[in-house]
Amino acid sequence: MRTSSRVLAVTTDDSGVRSVQRCVDILGLLTESRPAVSVAEIVRETGLAKTTVIRLVQTLERNGLLWATAHGYLAGPSLWRWAHLARGSWELPPEATELMRELARRHGETVNLYVRRDVHRVCVAQQESQQALRHVVRIGDELPLWGGAAATVLLADADDEHLARVAATSPHGDLATLRAGVDEAAARGWAVSHGEREAGLSAVAVPVQGRAGTVIAALSLSGPSVRFPDERVAEFAAALTEAAGQLHRRGFDHPFRQAGS
């Protein structure tokens, strides 16, 4: 990898941050469909030198974040502790889970709860539709904020600088259109999308307000567009609004389980 003299002159702090980001990138290569990754795959997909990759994976392995096997590097056992901590903070209270389960049962579509993270939205809870043709994402999946009903309501409190950064990630790059959609959803109290992120997929979403009255999450119903005609969209919006109101009245906030709760 070629490095300019300017880059070689970075401070120790900058170099440390870069190393941390590289480690995160390596861990990010592991997925359910690829539970193990080889050094050669890491080199190919990150563009890092082999010597750098070896140094980083050895550091991750020493700290239990990777585990070396004959098939490559797996997620390490130390991640269990962090996963347990994350679950304790982000797992929904039982009454909220039951509320989502009832929405999915009554309306026949998948119910998701998303939170905003920079220019992405993260799925933190889901109740799947029982229909054969249904929309499903995985817990922890990151989706873009530039499209989809849930994204639109999550941006209700975003300032112009944040909206500009989101628009810059969009294939359309249209800040004015993004702002107009956010403002319309805020005035109406809910958002609907048809094929914005994925053709044939529709969703209706409402904001969930925390104790301070700010938008902390988006509650949505999603599924095939053929099952989202106007009359069903109105029905979904009303049901979601009622459910979001119940969450707010119960003192909903996130992380969902605070220390000592």
Rank of each mutant, 00 (worst) to 15 (best):
L92I: 08
A96Q: 13
Y73V: 03
L30Y: 06
S222F: 00
A40P: 04
I139T: 06
E109K: 10
C123R: 00
T51D: 12
S4F: 00
N112K: 01
A199C: 07
G210A: 03
R18H: 07
I216V: 13
T69R: 15
L154S: 07
L85G: 02
D183T: 09
A151C: 11
R117D: 11
H84K: 08
R2C: 02
L66F: 06
R165C: 04
V204Y: 14
R105P: 01
E109H: 11
L66W: 04
E32L: 05
H254A: 04
R197E: 09
N63G: 12
A187E: 13
P144E: 12
A104S: 14
A70Q: 15
R22P: 05
V153P: 05
A49W: 07
G47C: 10
L219M: 09
R232Y: 09
H162S: 06
V37H: 07
S15N: 03
F252H: 13
G173L: 06
L201I: 10
T51Y: 09
V17W: 07
T52N: 10
T59Y: 09
A151G: 15
Q130V: 11
G140V: 02
F256Y: 09
E32Q: 13
L79Q: 08
A9T: 01
G28E: 12
A238Q: 15
V204F: 12
L133H: 14
R117S: 10
E161M: 13
A186F: 08
R232E: 13
L201V: 14
R55Q: 07
W90Q: 06
V226Y: 08
D160C: 03
R257K: 04
P171H: 14
A238C: 06
L65W: 11
A191W: 11
L27D: 06
H135E: 03
P224Q: 15
G200K: 14
H135Q: 01
P144R: 08
A68S: 12
T214D: 11
G213V: 02
V10Q: 00
A217F: 14
A150W: 10
T169D: 10
V124N: 12
G140L: 03
R2H: 12
S38T: 15
L155Y: 11
V215S: 09
G16H: 11
V119M: 13
R106Y: 02
H107E: 03
W80I: 10
S129R: 13
P224K: 11
L143Y: 00
V233L: 05
E61R: 11
F236S: 00
A96Y: 09
G148H: 01
G108M: 13
P144Y: 15
R81K: 10
E198K: 03
R81S: 05
E198N: 09
T59R: 04
H135D: 00
R121G: 01
G245M: 14
L247N: 04
